[in-house]
Simulated scan of single mutants.
Amino acid sequence: MHYRKAVVWQKAMALAREIYALASLLPGEERYGMRSQITRAAVSVAANIAEGWTRESARDKAHLLAVAHGSLSEAETLLTLCEDLGWCPRTDTVEARGLMDEISRMLTVLRRRRREVAQVEG
């Protein structure tokens, strides 16, 4: 299956679009600070899922899914800070938070399966 057909990748792309929309709410002076960091983290989730999907070995796939999961946690932490600072009202972040939760659950399952495959290969 091509990664574009994977629901987890599609949701990660939706999250990246949502984060870009939320980033427009940030103060102008944060263009090269928070805005840059949160959008890079969100894009990294989808990019690492795609890269991992195309790798040959289960170990490589598992590693890149772990990187994607780490980027998701980074994006979630940065979003929390944006909420805490009053830059992004919590009412505006509901969609992004829902996607983050779904993606996290999916990555947990995928990573668990990859670890099992890697143990069999290894």
Rank of each mutant, 00 (worst) to 15 (best):
M1K: 09
M1E: 07
M1S: 11
H2G: 12
Y3M: 02
Y3Q: 01
R4T: 08
K5I: 09
W9Q: 06
W9S: 05
W9D: 03
Q10E: 15
Q10H: 10
A12E: 01
M13D: 14
A14T: 07
L15M: 11
L15N: 02
L15D: 00
R17P: 00
R17H: 07
Y20T: 09
Y20Q: 12
Y20K: 08
A21K: 14
A21M: 05
L22V: 08
A23V: 04
A23W: 03
A23E: 05
S24G: 08
L26G: 09
P27N: 11
E29T: 11
E29S: 12
E29D: 14
E30N: 04
E30C: 02
E30F: 02
R31P: 03
G33P: 01
G33F: 10
G33D: 13
G33K: 12
M34N: 04
Q37R: 10
I38A: 11
I38K: 06
T39R: 09
T39D: 10
R40A: 15
A41T: 06
A41L: 06
A41W: 00
A41Y: 00
V43P: 03
V43Q: 04
S44Q: 01
S44D: 05
S44I: 05
V45N: 01
V45A: 02
A47V: 07
A47S: 11
I49F: 00
A50G: 02
A50P: 00
A50F: 02
A50Q: 06
E51T: 01
G52W: 02
G52T: 04
G52V: 02
G52I: 04
W53R: 08
W53E: 04
W53P: 00
W53L: 03
W53V: 02
W53K: 05
T54Q: 15
T54G: 12
R55S: 08
A58F: 12
A58E: 11
R59A: 13
R59V: 15
K61N: 06
L64Y: 08
L65T: 03
A66E: 10
V67I: 13
V67Q: 05
S71L: 05
S71I: 02
S73H: 12
S73G: 13
S73A: 14
E74H: 07
E74I: 05
E74N: 03
A75G: 06
E76A: 15
T77P: 00
T77E: 08
T77A: 12
L79M: 13
T80C: 09
T80D: 13
L81N: 02
C82W: 07
C82P: 01
C82H: 03
L85S: 07
G86M: 04
W87A: 01
W87G: 02
P89I: 10
P89C: 06
R90W: 10
R90G: 03
T91A: 15
T91F: 14
D92V: 13
D92G: 05
T93D: 09
E95G: 09
E95Q: 15
E95P: 01
A96T: 03
G98D: 08
M100S: 04
M100T: 06
D101R: 10
I103F: 01
S104F: 14
V109G: 13
V109E: 13
L110C: 07
R111M: 14
R112F: 12
R113C: 12
R113H: 12
R114T: 13
R114K: 14
R115I: 11
V117R: 11
A118I: 10
Q119H: 08
Q119A: 14
Q119G: 03
Q119W: 05
